[in-house]
Every structure is written in C-alpha cells, then in structure tokens.
Design a protein around this nucleic acid. Structure first.
Lengths: 181, 181
DNA sequence: CGCCGATCTTTCAAGCCTAAAATGTTTTCA
DNA sequence: TGAAAACATTTTAGGCTTGAAAGATCGGCG
C-alpha cells in the first residue's frame, strides 16, 4: 500500500486511488465483482424480509426499521437523529413518522429546550407490536444465515468492519474535496 | 448442523432453524449484527454512488444498473429477463425502460417469435454514454475499497458466496412451504 | 440588543418500487 | 381442436425516497 509522491498539499486519497488504478488499465474487476456480490446478498435478504413482514405483520420494512431505532431510545429521539441513524433524508422521516403516528405506534412530543426539534417515541402499542415483530425478524435472519458457521460469521464481521471504515474514508475524502478545493 | 427429529414429512429447514434457535432463548445476536453491518456497508456505498452518478452524469442508480445489464447482452434482452436479473418487479422495469427510451439510450424491438415479449437493447448513444459512466463507476468502487487488501477482497468474495447460497436456500425453503403445505 | 449563519423540520416535484389485477399471447394436454 | 394453465407485459394504487427550497428557531458575536 505505497503512499504517493507528495505534491498536492490537501488530502487526495480518492484521486490517488483512481490514478493508481488507471495505471493498470482496465482492472478493478475484483472490486466490482465484490460490490455486485455484496449488493446481491443485501437485495435478496431485504426482499425476503420485506415479503415476510408484509405477509405476517402487514408492515413495511422502513416502518419496521424506524420502530427498531426508537426501541433503542426509550426516551425518544429527534427526527434528525432518526434521519442520521437510518441514513435517509429528512423529508423521508417526516412522512414515515406521520404514517406510524396515524397507526398509533409512535407519538411526537415537543422537545423541551428547542422549539425547532421534535422528539418521537414508541407508544405502548408500538412497543409491544415491535417486540413481536423483532423476535420473528431475528429468527428469520438466523435461518437465512443457517448455512454459515460461527467462524464464517465472525470473520465476515471483521472484514465488513474493515470495509465500512474504508468506505467511510473514501466518502469523507470526497466531501472534504467538494468543500475545500 | 444436527438434523431434527423427523415428524413433519415435508421439508422444514426454516422451522427447524427457528426451533433450534428458540431453544437457546434470546440469541441470534451475532447473525443480527452481521446483517446490520452488511446493510450499513451497502447503504453507504449505494448512497455515495448515487450521489456521484447524479452529480457527474445526471443519471439515477436504477437507470445505470439497467444500462449495465443491457451492456452484457449485445442482442438485447426481454423485460422479464431484466426484471429477474435486477431482482425488481416487472412493472418497475416497464417504467425504467420507458424513461430511458425517451432519453434515447435504449430502444424496444419486437420479439421475433413471441408477441407477448419485447426485447430492449442499448442504442449507440446508450452504449457510449454507458461506457463513460462505467469506467468512472469502476474507479469509484475501487477507491471506496482502497482500505481492503487483495486478500481481504478474495476472502470476502468466498464468504459472500457462501452467504448468498445460504440465503437462497432459506428463501427456497419458505417458497416450497408456502406452496405445498 | 440585533443580525446572521447554522440547525431542525416540512413541503414539493420527480422518480423508484411493490403487489395485485388486467390484458394479450402462448403452450399444454385431454 | 379447444379449453385451461402458464407466461410476458402493463396498469394501478399506494408507499418510499431523494434533493432542493422554504419556514421556523437557535446561537454566537459585534
């Protein structure tokens, strides 16, 4: 992993990687294949979980995900916090919360100190509805991963942590470039 | 991977896995964490690629994906084939093809032998537009994976293949259950 | 104090996506 | 041959998602 000659003062990891890659003309095959395989796995699992949530609980995946986030914060969370954790846009959260509130699964409470912000939290009904779904959900995931050994799972965790960090770095580099230069 | 006592005649791998899991009460933690990490990686990469495709080429990710599928089939492909390969619904493909045809990047041609089906293929404009995007896209992915060694990538490929097979099996089992029993 | 940039949320238009029903075509097989 | 099943696509209604713009509030600083 040789570092590049240093001419540009500001961080340039992305450009460096692209440059280095273009020197070996049309490669990137392995990285591309890895990305496609990752995407296939995620798409298959997501589709299956979506189907099961709909069939057995008549709930959509994004709604389940939002409930799952709230479950982890007993005192509730602002919409912005939800948006960051779920990695979706602000406007998206507004609509999801609206629909879940209509169903009585979440409720909005005013933020005590900041009149811009709004807390959302599970209602008792939301809490118990989620508990049932979450238990099934965990069983489904475990069953889908039944062909993986414990060692496979541990190793995948380690490698995906590394991937997550690598991707985060790549994104940060672009953002700082977009801003600074 | 002990098989269960045999009482139910028809295949029951999913139920078996769920049963076995419930015996160790509230586990599945590792599988759940793995799924969450996988999802995080995919979401981050997808978001980043979506942003870059929009900023530099003013194209959406699903459109890029569709062009990529067609690129691999010089003589074109039916809508159903596209739908299966991209793992999205039929109606979705109808709309995507419609919009891409409006832009002149793809064209529909009648299927010679089957009047139900329709081929779609890249136009010359679509072909050359895609070529430019694909090259950038490959660079972006390679840059995002810059923190992974070649060995990491090879290992991830192997493990994700195993995961894909495991998930496929889990899905097939449910489908045969839904049908038969 | 009063402005101004940052932050939180909503709104909007456009596009993506699904499941299910509808339409037209082909294939099967009695 | 001629139903009936299977298949390929489109349509529809509803929901998800984004990016950008607008509205409301906050915090810092002169």
């Amino acid at each position: 992993m040789e570092l590049d000659h240093e001419e540009e003062p500001s961080a340039n990891l992305v450009l460096d990687a692209e440059t280095r890659a273009q020197e070996r003309p049309s490669d990137h095959q392995d990285e591309l294949r890895l990305w496609l395989r990752l995407l296939t796995c995620t798409t298959m699992i997501e589709g299956e979980i979506r189907t099961r949530l709909r069939e057995r609980f008549d709930v959509t995946l994004p709604r389940f995900d939002l409930l799952a986030q709230l479950e982890k914060a007993p005192d509730g969370m602002t919409l912005g916090e939800l948006s960051r954790r779920m990695m979706v846009s602000n406007g998206n959260i507004t609509g999801l919360v609206e629909r879940l509130a209509e169903l009585g699964l979440v409720e909005r409470v005013p933020h005590p100190a900041d009149r811009r912000a709004a807390f959302v939290r599970l209602t008792p009904a939301g809490h118990s509805a989620f508990a049932e779904m979450a238990s099934q959900h965990a069983d489904w995931i475990a069953a889908l991963f039944d062909g993986l050994s414990d060692a496979d799972i541990r190793l995948l965790m380690r490698l995906l942590s590394r991937m997550k960090q690598s991707v985060r770095d790549g994104i940060d580099v672009r953002k700082s470039q977009d801003k600074g230069e």
